[in-house]
């Protein structure tokens, strides 16, 4: 009786020590789950999810305040990746936050632009160049296509131009053929 109690006690102490040691030794700095969620999000910073940016949305998902299907730019693939990461069931994109559409880039009609700087203040990634009373222009490479610059423009000189497929960014398509080798076909 006594021996068994001692053995259990001894084991408890040992395991406790190991656990204590590892909690100190392998302590993880910060909250990696937020980082992980953030790395899945497309970083458009568009706020369509009703949070002020991708990071705040990631934080909200991590806390359980937000659902995983509120990010239209991430599309179906993004929701799937989030579902897998969070270990929850996939659900279709919540359309009240907008629909997924191909990536577009903002273009400023430089003849119409009055140089009011309102769009510069709205741009979440500082991708618009220009100063007061000077015409503005978009740094194409850095535009995320968030459309946040559209509403503040007083003269409606900004348009969204979808990225055109050309010989450089063109992709090979998923092979389509007639039978059941591809499960996708069967499901359709």
């Amino acid at each position: 009786m006594l021996t068994s109690i001692l053995i259990i006690l001894f084991l408890a102490v040992i395991i406790g020590l190991v656990l204590g040691f590892s909690s100190v030794q392998f302590k993880v700095e910060g909250d990696p789950i937020i980082e992980k969620i953030d790395s899945i999000l497309p970083q458009t910073q568009c706020g369509q999810c009703s949070y002020p940016g991708c990071k705040p949305y990631a934080t909200a998902i991590a806390k359980g305040d937000a659902d995983i299907n509120q990010c239209p730019p991430g599309g179906e693939k993004g929701v799937r990746a989030l579902a897998e990461l969070m270990g929850v069931e996939y659900k279709p994109l919540n359309e009240s936050h907008g629909i997924s559409k191909p990536k577009a880039i903002a273009f400023i009609d430089e003849d119409t632009c009055i140089g009011c700087t309102l769009c510069i203040q709205a741009c979440p990634v500082d991708a618009i160049l220009g100063a007061a009373k000077q015409m503005h222009t978009i740094i194409e490479k850095e535009c995320t296509g968030c459309e946040l610059c559209l509403p503040p423009c007083p003269v409606d000189c900004i348009t969204m131009e979808p990225i055109e497929e050309n010989a450089e960014n063109w992709k090979w398509k998923y092979p389509v053929y007639s039978i059941a080798v591809s499960e996708k076909k069967v499901n359709n």
């Binding site: 497309p42 970083q43 458009t44 940016g53 990071k55 500082d126």
Partner: peptide
């Protein structure tokens, strides 16, 4: 071919996202 071009375009998108994240962080 499909998988390769998909992976390449995903990695380009990831790079762009990293730049956007950095610029957004910087802006904040």
């Amino acid at each position: 071919r499909y998988a390769k071009s998909e992976i390449i375009s995903q990695s380009i998108a990831a790079e762009e996202a990293d730049i956007a994240r950095e610029r957004n962080d910087f802006r904040i």
